[in-house]
Design a protein around this nucleic acid. Structure first.
Lengths: 92, 92, 92, 92
DNA sequence: TCAGATAAAATCGCGC
DNA sequence: GCGCGATTTTATCTGA
């Protein structure tokens, strides 16, 4: 028999392995969904306190863009420095 | 002054409250992203074991559809039974 | 007969209308593809002149992000002003 | 100095050349975006006439696949004929 | 119902 | 040539 799992007709890939991966993924997706629901709840709660969720979403999005831009500028900087053979130097 | 925060020019909505909501949301989004990354890792790991991630995604998606369909059927069934005054009976 | 196109068996939607839409879309997609090819050519040409296309793409992307951020900030500003009942005023 | 631009510290690559490339790309991207917007408009218009845009997208995609397949078959055919020394014959 | 945001999937360009 | 990352396209979802 070609693998230790003991399945009949298995061709070197353990039959249960796929299930295991799928289940891990589904579990993670479930957690992700739970958090997404939490986010919605916070927006709801904020709206109940008088905030406009549209405005809030815009703010959150802008702050994220800002973080992303900073990160990308770092990356561009790194590209430049690699280009100029300054790898590792001036590691700020 | 209408709220305890003491901000000048505030119009009945505590200024710090918005920040608090934003921060809670950003924290949750961060956690969500972390889980999304975990999912990608599992797909990667599965690929390394010889599974095709495209196929796996299809499986996950189909199983999700299936769960959703079942749930909807349950709800529909419940609706019918309520309609027919059969609440609680046949709790199959 | 229910529509002016004169097709037999048509059910109120002119049979040729779909084709017309599809063709307009396909024409536009073709033009879009031609431009995308032009863009690639420019990157190629720049690379031939000694520029790193990865760096160039990053620059283009950052400049786009910048424009997007400015636009969104305008939108946020507009949301705030609507909120405060200042629509149209100070149309700067 | 190795180039006419006169920049100090330039290392053989004209400094303005990068800007020129970037600008050409951004101009093209703008045109591309304009066409993409046109496409969306056509889908919208079609929807207003009663067509399902999801179905239309599927049709467009299938027709594209079809064209690609035909083109590939032509190329394959040409390859075979070259192989067999039948260039130019049967220019069907 | 509708647009606009979000996520998922497919595609493409690059370096190894 | 293949994986990896980035971009683009498609589909789903949510809020107005």
């Amino acid at each position: 028999m070609s693998d230790a799992s003991g399945e009949i007709g298995s061709n070197s890939i353990p039959a249960g392995a796929l299930s295991a991966f799928i289940e891990r993924i589904e579990l993670l997706e479930e957690e992700k969904q739970a958090i997404a629901d939490d986010v919605k709840e916070v927006y709801s709660e904020a709206k109940g306190t008088g905030f406009d969720s549209k405005v809030m979403r815009k703010i959150v999005s802008l702050r994220k863009q800002d973080r992303d831009t900073r990160r990308e500028m770092q990356e561009l900087m790194k590209l430049y420095m690699d280009e100029l053979g300054m790898q590792g130097e001036l590691a700020l």
